[in-house]
Design a protein around this nucleic acid. Sequence first.
RNA 1: GAGGCUGUAGCUCAGUUGGUUAGAGCAUCAGAUUGUGGUUCUGAGGGUCGUGGGUUCGAUCCCCAUCAGCCUCCCCA
Length: 464
Amino acid sequence: MSKPSIPQGTRDFSPAEVRKRQYIFNTLRTIFELYGFQPLETPAMENLTTLTGKYGEEGDRLIFKILNNGLHEKKEADKEKLNSEWSKMLEKPFSSPIVTERALRYDLTIPFARYVVMHQNELAFPFRRYQMQPVWRADRPQKGRYREFWQCDADVVGSTSLINEAELLCIYQSAFHNLGLTQVTVKINSRKLLAGIAELCGTPELMMDITIALDKLDKIAWEGVTKELQERGISEAGISHVEKVINVKGNNEEKLYALQEIMKDSVTGMQGINELKQALAYHKELADAAWDSRLEVDVSLARGLNYYTGVIVEVACKAVQMGSIGGGGRYDDLTGLFGLKGLSGVGVSFGIDRIYDVMEELKLFPEQLASGADVLLINFGGENELYALGVLKQLRSAGVSAELYPDVVKFDKQMKYANKRGLQYVILPGDEERQKGMLSLKNFNSGEQKMLSVDECIEIIKKN
RNA sequence: GAGGCUGUAGCUCAGUUGGUUAGAGCAUCAGAUUGUGGUUCUGAGGGUCGUGGGUUCGAUCCCCAUCAGCCUCCCCA
């Protein structure tokens, strides 16, 4: 017999971990609902053709594909085809519907776009939805990177208003505030601003190259970026333009003001700046002064996914060495990929596994999440067992979460069980208690024990 | 796709410059204590030293291969 194990990059979540994760989910769900977003769930698997080509070349490689069933049952003619397709797959990155036609969900945005197109006639636009489900990526696991992880997304489709951007920024800030996660920075930029930079360089077609190089600024510093820009074919004049842009300092207003001067010859760039200004202006009206996460215009922010077209955001927590804990942006024609033109969308994503890791490292989970039921009834067997069942019923109908030890085993074993479970109270329904119609209630934290009626027990337990 | 580190009890890890019977802590079980847990004491069980091969009189240790896990780059949540 082999040792039991789980696939690389996946995890079991033990009770205490699930409680903490639910705490995050519940916090986010409350906010999403408060902002008027509706819940949506989509299948764990999608047709492979729905996913391929949406995440770039690297993304395609990371899609978990599902092998078709019943390959051995194919007719002989099909098997020849199967063999040749299989050979191709061994030579190069290649997929064939005869071998695999389904794949695990890679993110929540593309399935959402697919859903919107399929249900366009039923939906009231602008459609606001939130979705909290696992996604899978065939990446190599490392710190903060899993092959199965959960995303919580909020998107609005069918509206170009920058109020949406402002609302989503508020959702981020509100969520991190409610989770007690400080030292969070929400970075904001615009793809149009990046396009404007490329225009200024005289090489608008190299926007992606400039973007990718610029994105590495905090890792490889300006010198490294310069080198990379040279390698990617940007002229010296262009590089000096880029340098001017990234050297813009100050608060958000000052930065945008300065960028306006630099960008004045680029229509697209100016558009990006104006959008940022407008989004921030709306945000100012909507934001709560108590939220302490920073909102920072960062022209080096790029975002990998290639469907973004407008404002883009990314969230980082400076207190912990960890990749981004969230990201998002506007995509002008996402549903166009599935044949529905002219619908603009904007959304944000929370990486809840990373948020969990960060909160764990910073010890931000509330203490009381750890415990489960409130009280254990000791099983003394015989008539006492029946007496205990009656008490159990009363406790539960009063809303006290309670359990009876199901087996008649040694007293100290039952007590040890209660202790290990971290329960607050133990009730001893023994001979004496039963005869008096009372209960002994023991508080496990103080060690104090009293003979009480059921109602008194309920009152004390509920008060705690 | 490239590179680095680590595989010894259920868990976390010692260990042997190659030697007979491989250890500790935690956990588990039993007892001290058959209606009082969390503290303490006593005892017990538990290992193909990741797998395969090589060197050797002898390998958990050295060499090669392989698998798995962790980490870094790339990319991302």
